[in-house]
Design a binder for these strands. Structure first.
Lengths: 332, 332
DNA sequence: ACGGCATGGTGACCATGGAAGACGTCGCCC
DNA sequence: GGGCGACGTCTTCCATGGTCACCATGCCGT
């Protein structure tokens, strides 16, 4: 391997000068700089990231922990995060937490041992985090669902607002028997309950009564779970004319389940999702949905870790992503 | 930061002994080992990966370069790779190449500068690789589409075999006017032409003539491109009763495009895809597809990099993934 | 008494970056 | 005009946290 020392010898300078050139510091004369650059080119030298890291204490890598990269929503988000981080000169390493508190705690610990400069955690389960290994002073940004009472930098989905808008939209289309297919109930104010609040708020505002029989809880937010929920919902015999799905992924399953039971969307039942994953524009019928600005979220999150890396003790910031309602065939 | 030196002092041993304990090497007595472990626990010590890497020359990280993590197929694959690598004690860093030769070459260079121990490259564009920065001796495994004449370890999709089976399946269902929606043509024997060969081979075997008007080339393998192709296909007025899509992602677009033009699947046109992404089971109608064993591919690829890291000069290995035909509603 | 094994220690070394200093030159001021 | 400080440029030395190759010690069996 060709080292800085080799380049220095080749250019007839000391390795510190090479270091200065490599890192674009000034205090190096133009002539010498050119000589060094030429030597670097000739020798094919590349900085040794490990040595730099060891010396400087920075890795230039931020971790991104998501429940499951296979879910379209997280793949989507990851793409934006990678891009935004790249613009700030960071690399991204992706961890999977498996949507479990243990995995999320692991990701934090792991992130520290690998000496990531910071971590963006898309937590869905980790609640009482003060009992968890979130050592103070480590740049940690929560992305997405949970709310930790201002203890961390946080970029939130417009959970309540978005679901409320979605439900209101169904009501405005004339739906009066609106079901919600939601996630597992939890003690904490997480994504599921937030979205549920939005649903309730919309119903209240439109003067529609709440029927507990129209609330379906899923164990996981998968397509299969959505499909089963839709089937059970129809089989239960309760009259419905609208469904709010907690995510688009679930909505895809619901769409399929309704088809399995011979119900037409939107003629018999209107359906709306949340996330606006790419697939939603291509289903038959295409899926109306709440579209949070994923790019905005990714940029904000990266910005926050970057800031916290530079200034660990800055007060925490809380953002809620903007969103818009995308109306497609499923609620026409 | 707690260093090995600190632990050593706390346990009353030298740091080499701590190193031996940390790395589970023998030559350390049980008593001393316990003392060291206790000291590690008390101090909250974590190894500094950079220092280890600097000295030992190994990072324990392998790169995975894919065109776009946002495409379901690659997310899917990445999940399997991460899991398989984890079992072998490697971490995975994901790079996006943007489906461009430049990006792919970058990923190789980048992978080396970050001192990944090896790289799994899901190349779709990089062809004449001998002119590219694939320095000999660097553990590089090609995953998926391309074929480099045995110069690299390679885990291939069953491109030709799978597409042939898919086309034959349509023919056996009675289709006689079978279109193919494929990717950009290229000079090289890549995924697109391989799959095209399979299509042609099946037609020949079933005695069905080839109609150039039924071959549609896409600029990129996206849902939107699939939709447009389907529309153009119908608008062109050519009679068709079957469509082979080059990937499931494209097939989702085709499905939507056919719906846009009022054609029913499978009654008017049968449709089959390739990849078996999770979404394919939930579309309406659900999508028949060629299902390569992704888990198998990921495991094989990880196994190959791991082997090559240990033995750089081993002769190259070539695998073709097994597959099965998954028959769903779109070809009933 | 001597060789061998089991256990643990020593110092060099990996590639880079920070701090402080050396060196030459130039300008300023008396 | 000479001495001196300041400045720009580059060098030297050392620290960073582990690991490697080798060495030292002590105990055992023969």
């Amino acid at each position: 391997m060709v080292t800085m020392e080799d380049v220095a010898r080749l250019a007839g300078v000391s390795k510190m000068t090479v270091s200065n050139v490599v890192n674009n510091r000034d205090g190096v004369g133009d002539l010498v700089r050119q000589r060094v650059l030429e030597a670097i080119r000739q020798s094919g030298y590349r900085v040794n990231v490990s040595a730099r890291t060891l010396r400087s204490g920075r890795t230039g890598v931020i971790g991104l922990a998501v429940p499951d990269i296979e879910l379209p929503y997280f793949g989507h988000l990851a793409a934006h995060v990678i891009e935004a981080a790249g613009r700030q000169g960071f690399h991204v390493a992706i961890e999977q937490t498996g949507a479990a508190a243990a995995g999320e705690a692991d990701a934090i610990a792991h992130s520290r041992t690998l000496h990531f400069d910071g971590l963006i955690l898309s937590a869905v389960e980790l609640d009482r985090l003060d009992e968890h290994p979130a050592e103070a002073g480590y740049p940690l940004v929560m992305l997405g669902e949970q709310d930790f009472g201002g203890r961390f930098d946080h970029v939130a989905m417009p959970n309540e607002e978005g679901t409320k808008a979605a439900t209101t939209h169904l009501a405005d289309r004339g739906c009066r028997r609106i079901a919600i297919v939601t996630g597992r109930a939890s003690d904490d104010v997480n994504m599921v309950t937030r979205r549920h609040y939005g649903y309730l708020a919309a119903l209240a505002e439109r003067g529609i009564g709440v029927d507990p029989a129209l609330v379906f809880s899923l164990d996981d937010a998968s397509m299969e779970a959505g499909r089963e929920a839709a089937c059970r919902l129809v089989d239960s015999g309760h009259e419905i004319d609208g469904v709010v799905a907690v995510t688009d992924t679930v909505a895809l399953g619901v769409l399929r389940g309704l088809a399995d039971r011979g119900l037409r969307v939107p003629e018999d039942v209107r359906l709306i999702g949340f996330d606006d994953i790419p697939e939603s524009g291509f289903t038959v019928p295409s899926l109306s949905t709440v579209a949070p600005d994923h790019r905005w979220m990714a940029e904000r999150a990266v910005e926050l870790v970057a800031q916290r890396i530079r200034a660990p003790l800055r007060p925490t910031a809380q953002y809620v992503a903007p969103f818009e309602l995308v109306i497609r065939e499923s609620t026409r």
